[in-house]
Amino acid sequence: MKYTVICAAALIVGASSAFAQTKLTFASPAPAPTPLHAAVLEGWAQKVTEDSNGTLEVELVTGGTLAAHGQVLDRVTQGVVQIGWDIQGYYPGKFPKTEVVALPFGFDTSENGTVAMNKLLEDGTIASEYQDVKVLNLFTFPNGYLLSSKPTASLADAAGQKISGINPTRQSIAGAVDGVPVSLSITDWYQGLSRGTIDGAIESYSAVAPFRLQEVTGNALEVPLGGNAAFMFMNQDVFDGLPDEAKAAIENNSGAEFDRQMGAFWDGAAGYGRKLMTDAGATITTPDEAQMAEWETALQPIIDAWVESVDGGEDILDKFHEAASADM
């Protein structure tokens, strides 16, 4: 009788352990009020938790509390947190092939560029850059424009301006237009623009609202200066150790549909940011065909240099353009 009771107790403990809930901490480096959290990431975390049938709890921690931009990848691979998202541009030299999305004149909308990027991931073109993690979502922010505190209506107006940009390509663009590249975190742009440390930044309108750029930039020149790749990812070993229900909950809420959702969200955020600029009285300039040709000529050396420096660069660029064009 005693043996039977002990066995029964062991079975209960074993069953409880087998179905124990795993908590996954999801670190976001973005400021807490960023619309991305309420509009996308909170819903994703909740849906994964609900779909896991009690095997998972995903907790989103925002504001860079657990990992700032440029730290998230290490925090995830080291197991400090299990899930995170970040911008590849904060890891110079680690994602050279993915940087194709940062080249000027490569895609139309964020959704369009995001779909093209994921085709390159799926066909293996850029997959080698993501072997250390499990990719849940790969996307690009909308095209960056030159947002400036100084009147900027032409290529000539950019000359001499102190210009910041998150990724290395945007720094190169600043130099190519005879500006002065300035390395400055996006979180410091507001103060930098206010004090004259920088005159402008190459960034999409999607950054206007969270960083209040409409208050310190009165001009926008709408030349498509390339995107900014970003990704959402988790620790591969942690994923591999999850029960099947938990894995399914994560994978069913990731992938192509989520990629498009993320791209569409950023396109909407860019539209809102542009409205904030116009409502604040900003001068927005869209170059005519001749002016755009001047920009293309000035920036072609940057594209050529990327093709030359990246293994298989020309093939990657062709594939990206083809995928982006097919989705338009």
Rank of each mutant, 00 (worst) to 15 (best):
P92L: 11
P92W: 12
G93S: 04
F95E: 04
F95N: 02
P96A: 14
P96F: 07
P96L: 14
P96M: 13
K97W: 01
E99M: 13
V100F: 08
V101D: 06
V101G: 09
A102N: 15
P104K: 03
P104V: 02
F105N: 15
G106D: 06
G106Y: 01
D108V: 09
D108Y: 10
S110M: 06
N112I: 01
G113M: 07
V115S: 03
V115H: 07
A116G: 07
M117S: 09
N118R: 08
L120E: 12
L120I: 12
L120Q: 10
L120A: 11
L121K: 06
L121A: 13
D123V: 05
D123T: 06
T125W: 06
T125A: 15
E129G: 09
Q131G: 07
D132W: 00
D132T: 11
L136D: 00
L136E: 00
L136R: 00
N137M: 04
N137T: 01
T140V: 14
T140F: 01
F141N: 03
G144S: 04
L146I: 04
L147F: 04
L147C: 03
L147M: 14
L147H: 04
S149D: 12
T152V: 15
T152A: 14
A153Y: 02
A153R: 15
L155P: 07
A156T: 14
D157V: 12
D157F: 13
A158R: 12
Q161M: 11
I163R: 07
I163Q: 07
S164T: 10
N167F: 10
T169E: 02
R170G: 15
Q171T: 11
Q171Y: 08
Q171E: 06
Q171M: 05
S172V: 03
S172P: 00
I173M: 09
G175E: 03
G175Q: 05
A176V: 03
A176C: 03
A176T: 03
V177P: 08
D178C: 03
G179M: 01
G179I: 00
S183E: 14
S183M: 12
L184D: 05
L184R: 08
T187N: 15
D188R: 13
Y190I: 08
Y190P: 03
Q191E: 12
G192S: 09
L193R: 12
L193A: 13
